[in-house]
Design a protein around this nucleic acid. Structure first.
Length: 491
RNA sequence: CGGGGCGUAGCACAGCUUGGUAGUGCGCACGGUUUGGGACCGUGAGGCCGCAAGUUCGAAUCUUGCCGCCCCGACCA
């Protein structure tokens, strides 16, 4: 195994692939397009899950679980939804194998065991869930229903990349039902806010809240809201979506409730999700040529302590000094690993924990014991300083907080420096080629959006929610436009 | 599905042109010397050379077919 990672500046996608594998986050599986999430990668995902789950609960949601298999007829009900997902569904047609009579040891699909109705492996769960809601919802008193599920889904993608786009991925999907349109829209916006909060305060990832254009809208939604982030190579990544589904699913699954006036009405729906794709965003937003850089709040190991020793006796003396520090850090809620393994040398460990993105490294050797000091190294800016052992726990707490903020600020600065306002077609093409968010006027038609995509590979990432009204002319057609939208090449 | 590349030890690869004992580095095991930024020496284990058929006295190497993977495009969170 070569020591150095490919450089971001030379080959960004190879850098990404290598970092995922070498930092022990994930690897390819025997099945094309699927991935094995390794313990260290899964530990990060678990921290994300925990934070998000707490936020969902805090906003009144409950977890439930709906099945992996969806009858094909369910998927067919909502026309746009069906069309949107049809071409990427895995389908179960049989329920039994049998020994191949012509080939000893081999198994074949038993032709006798064909399912009467094929089952789709869920690409998303609106249909099964709304089918269930039919019996759950009778009266306005049953509403709202605020459900979330943590699950895997399958979308048979042509081209896949670890975390960013895999055939099977893990996610959460919230599915809510409301008595009024207004309430459902508020829910959609609220959850988008939750995602923004999570992205910025946990992932240290600045995001733009916006609305998708018709072309980019979720299949079956009335309106799709999103948070969009900018990666270090200048490409955009959709980090989360929240959909206002109107009454589309209620109608096709015949879900009705009696309102206060004793009239039958269709409830209003939302759905919202984030996936293991966030892992890709996390990696691409912050990491450097030495490896992963993790925001402290999501780092499985926040502090690693590396003893520098020659003999068993040295190690024993260091351990004695380190153990109370470990205990104190843990008491402060900080996850810490004391790596006293003598099979690897300290230099190897330094490089390894940098690769894995451990935020703070403490190194302590005989010299430190004499001086009463310990070395504190920061992963984000690779600086190190010597501090007194007595104050190290306090120092670590401060450093972790500073890092969380510094990583966010760095990403924010990057986004600001890579957000451009352009007004001419030539400028537009040139800037898209260079990368970044490009703010430009658009005449609001799907046709123009499509033409721009064909010519530049750029899509409208979103119509920002809080952008100022500003009349202008469409960058491609010159037609009137009321506001700027964000264009970028995207993952 | 188009275009390109690759299948040889756990990993990364050489060997193939010109057929003749299966190799190198990393990793692994054991022993020793080392240890403040990816240590070194010695010994050792580990292979149906992607699969199948063919050519040949003899195939990792030549021929044909198949399978798989990766990268680039069209589709997408």
């Amino acid at each position: 195994m070569s020591k150095a990672l490919p450089k971001r500046s030379e080959n960004y996608s190879e850098w990404y692939n290598e970092i995922v594998k070498r930092a022990g986050l994930a690897e390819n599986s025997p099945v094309r397009g699927c991935m094995i999430i390794k313990p260290y990668g899964f530990a990060i995902w678990e921290k994300m899950q925990r934070a998000l789950d707490d936020m969902f609960k805090a906003t009144g949601h409950e977890n439930a679980y709906f099945p992996l298999f969806i009858p094909k007829s369910f998927l067919e009900k909502e026309e746009e939804h069906a069309e949107g997902f049809a071409k990427e569904c895995a389908v179960v047609t049989h329920y039994r194998l049998k020994a191949d009579p012509n080939n000893k040891g081999a198994l074949i699909v038993d032709p006798e065991a064909r399912l009467e109705e094929e089952l789709i492996i869920r690409p998303t769960s609106e249909t099964v869930i709304w089918n269930a809601y039919r019996t759950w919802i009778q009266s306005w008193r049953d509403l709202p229903i605020l459900i979330n599920q943590w699950a895997n889904v399958v979308r048979w993608e042509m081209r896949t990349r670890l975390f960013l786009r895999t055939a099977e991925f893990l996610w959460q999907e919230g599915h809510t039902a409301h008595a009024t349109e207004q309430e459902a829209i508020e829910e959609t916006e609220q959850m988008l806010g939750v995602y923004e909060d999570f992205a910025e305060n946990w992932m240290a990832l600045p995001v733009v809240q916006g609305v998708k254009t018709a072309n980019e809208r979720f299949a079956g939604a009335v309106e799709t809201y999103c948070i969009e982030a900018l990666m270090q190579d200048g490409r955009a990544l959709q980090a989360g979506t929240s959909h206002f589904l109107g009454q589309n699913f209620a109608k096709v699954f015949d879900v009705k409730f009696v309102n206060r006036e004793n009239q039958l009405e269709y409830p209003w729906a939302t759905s919202w999700g984030v996936s293991t794709r966030l892992m890709g965003a996390l990696i691409m937003a912050h990491s450097d040529d030495n490896g992963l850089v993790l925001p402290p709040k999501l780092a499985p190991i926040q502090v690693v302590i590396i003893p520098i020793f020659k003999t068993e006796e040295d190690l024993a003396r260091i351990s004695e000094r380190v153990e109370p520090i470990v205990a104190e850090l843990r008491k402060a809620g900080i996850s810490v690993k004391f790596d006293s393994d003598d099979k690897q040398r300290s230099g190897w460990k330094f490089a390894e924990y940098e690769l894995r993105g451990v935020p703070v490294r403490l190194a302590i050797g005989a010299r430190d014991l004499e001086n009463g000091t310990i070395e504190v190294a920061r992963r984000d800016n690779l600086t190190k300083e010597s501090v007194t052992i007595d104050g190290v726990v306090e120092t670590v707490k401060i450093v972790l907080e500073q890092m969380q903020e510094a990583i966010y600020q760095k990403a924010l600065r990057f986004r600001e420096e890579n957000t451009f306002t352009v007004d001419t077609w030539d400028e537009f093409k040139m800037q898209i080629e260079k990368g970044g968010f490009v703010l430009a006027h658009w005449d609001g038609t799907p046709e123009t959006e499509e033409r721009i995509k064909d010519e530049t590979k750029a899509t409208i990432r979103c119509i920002p929610l809080n952008s100022a009204e500003e009349s202008g002319q469409c960058v491609m057609t010159g037609n009137d436009s009321a506001e700027r939208v964000i264009f970028a090449r995207a993952y």
